[in-house]
Amino acid sequence: MRITNEIVQFLERDDNSRQLAGKGDAVKVGNTKSKKQKRVLNDYLYNLHLKFLA
């Protein structure tokens, strides 16, 4: 569980991904009413994996 949280935090950093701007680019999280904005990776997943390991 700890490694999963570290990976999510790494991928959500602004130097690794960016948020989509539109209102319609939000998705519901679980059964709650909260929404989370979609993100797009700034690099290939292979390169991000190497960066995470470093």
Rank of each mutant, 00 (worst) to 15 (best):
K38M: 13
D43P: 01
Q19C: 04
E6T: 09
L20R: 15
G24Q: 12
N5W: 10
S34L: 07
L41C: 01
Y46N: 01
L48R: 04
N5I: 03
V8L: 04
K38S: 01
I3H: 03
L41I: 05
N16H: 11
N5T: 01
Q37R: 09
V27E: 03
A26D: 13
T32C: 07
L53I: 14
M1A: 09
N16T: 10
A26I: 01
F52E: 05
L50I: 01
Q19V: 05
Q37V: 11
D14V: 05
K38N: 03
N42R: 14
E6V: 04
L41K: 02
V8F: 00
V8A: 04
N5C: 05
N16E: 08
L53N: 13
V29F: 07
I3Q: 11
A54Q: 12
Y44F: 08
V27H: 05
N16D: 06
Y46V: 04
A26S: 13
N16C: 11
N16L: 02
V27G: 00
G22V: 13
Y44A: 08
L48A: 02
Q19G: 03
L41G: 00
A26Q: 10
D25H: 15
R18Q: 08
K38A: 06
H49V: 09
V40L: 03
Q9M: 11
S34K: 07
T32S: 15
M1K: 11
V27S: 06
N5D: 14
R18N: 03
T32A: 08
F52H: 02
V40G: 00
Q9E: 15
G22W: 02
L53V: 13
L48Q: 08
